[in-house]
Amino acid sequence: MDSDPKGDGLRVGVFVCDCGLNIAGTVDTQAVTDYAATLPDVVCAIRNRYTCADPGQNEIKKAIAEHRLNRVVIASCTPLQHEPTFRTCVAEAGLNRYLMEMANLREQCSWVHPSDMEGATRKAKDLVAGAVARARNLQPHDDLSVPVTKRALVIGGGIAGMEAALELADSGHQVVLVEKEASIGGIMAQLDKTYPTMDCSI
């Protein structure tokens, strides 16, 4: 896959998220955006109120088309939350999913340095600089696609395992239920009456 099909060299777009006041309350997001615009190969730097919301995502897609972006940096929250969201977003705009990089300004800056706006902003700038540097080196990749064996294993035959196994079986899947004791049932089978209904457990 070609990361630069149009041959126009690296074109990085940076999107800095306010996250309402979650980030902008502590980090000077405008200063971060202005700083981002000065970084190598950055051709557009845009500040959003909520980058993950539809208007924010639409702005990214628009910028990808308008500025012929081939790398995207999103400076917002933790990638553990929204990396899949933004990967899908850039993919919808025709960019390979792996050409998107995030900088974590919320969990790592604003939320943990609320009394140090200057320090938080400096840190945010560095994280964006790091993300842009990394983005300039990103390569497109294809996810591997593998077939799924249509059978489930349930380990433990208490109420939680039995219910899950039955539910899967009811929806037409083969299930292997493994219980280490001689009978399924777990703790519940040892109970007499159970709250809140006060009826028998078995």
């Binding site: 799924v148 294993l153 380990i155 395992g161 899950a164």
Partner: peptide, 15 residues
Amino acid sequence: KRDVGAVIVAIGADV
């Protein structure tokens, strides 16, 4: 031996 696509862990707790 069984090939499976997904695993549900429901090994409970110890009283």
